[in-house]
Nucleic acid binder design. Sequence first.
DNA 1: ATGTTC
Length: 491
Amino acid sequence: MYHFRSLIMQKVTKEHIEKLTDYLWEIPTSFRKDMLVPARILASEQILDDIIEDRSLNQLVNVATLPGIRKASLVMPDVHEGYGFPIGGVAATSYPDGAISPGGIGYDINCGVRLLTSSLKMKDIKEDLEALGKELYAKIPSGMGKGGQIRVFSEQMDEVLHRGAEWGVKQGYGHKDDLAYIESKGRLAWADPSCVSQMAKNRGTDQLGTIGSGNHFVEVDVVEEIYDNESAKAYGLHKNQIVVMIHTGSRGLGHQVATDYIRIMINAMQKYGIKLPDRELACVPFNSEEGQNYFKAMCAAANYAWCNRQIISWEVRNAWETLFGKEKGQLRLMYDVAHNIAKVEDHVINGKNERVIVHRKGATRAFGPNFEELPDAYIAVGQPVIIPGSMGTCSYVLAGTTKSYDITFGSCCHGAGRRLSRTAAKKQVNAPVLKEQLRERGIFIEAGSFKGIAEEAPIAYKDVNSVVDTVNISGIAKKVAKIKPLVVVKG
DNA sequence: ATGTTC
């Protein structure tokens, strides 16, 4: 495939991009001979100009060569460079023989976000923010490689992998009612613990109920603005309300599953005659033995992540009760979304219903109204989508729309999106100074390391407002509420 | 993201 090589080196520039609408751009298949479908970018012109120098658009083009890819390779406005596939990417492949690729899901399988709502208002906790930060930091284990008190071995681990959040609830870490408010009810039924290596299980033994490091956090926020009264009411959100956001994934266990299967797939690819422009896109047919084993292991790791966020919610609820008492200490689960996962879903392509394997990497599901999985209270307004911004800025709650099915296979962005690498951020940011500046603005950070603060500084991220405006105006999700951080707990 | 660079 030598004649492809020079083409593969060709960088995407603005001249290669066609404008479809003010917020949708396309790199046509004529750009490179190995593209099977066009590559599409959901972005304002400003965001497009900001990412044009990035390697992520070339990664987007590479994804368009994935065997069995349907309709288009897509990126959301929070796109940035990732392992093989860009982060902020969506790729749907045909079921059952299209590709499944661990790089299209990410190392942190079922990294995701959940939001808990409280009955407290800003005035109730104004004086308690620092104490709350210390209490949460004490109750929730955080940091690189950190474990917690809970241990799960052999049969119990298999049950966690099998049952996800349901296992947590059964053990007393939460209410039965929580489950209805989790994407896929916190459990993917295809999970098979026997497809998860012993090494992965060992790494997961003591990491349930822990947040990890990097961009993972537990955050207390106040609802600053409501944009859509009907949806906000359905979700139980109102102005000045205190809420809690949890962002983490499957920790070492999911990372090991990804590592194990990327290695397996790199070796198995030749057998299936798959050639790709970048070995980081390693994939096999979904219905091959390796593909099925990965999918079952990925589902198991996703279940582990849901169980993890369930147990962290229990830890948060304990801290809440300690500070505010039983009556005022209630926290309700608003919703929990995955943003690194693959799902088998039915979508309409060229007017025909098709079953596809939707890879979402740094992208969330954003299904609209009348989706039967949704809890009764949400069915008329659509699935909640939770978009964490950076530490010192703000975050959003959105509602999925029917229009997202047409444009993005029912998907939306997952955050602000990085604009500086971790290394670049560390060079530019003085973490102790930043911590003090945020404190002066009423934001209390409890972090295990200054390194973590520097890497996650607001300057390291795109403007979440313009990212959210893009998805809102293009119609793939609707703005419901803006929330502002008060307390941040990090690794 | 991750017991950080197969």
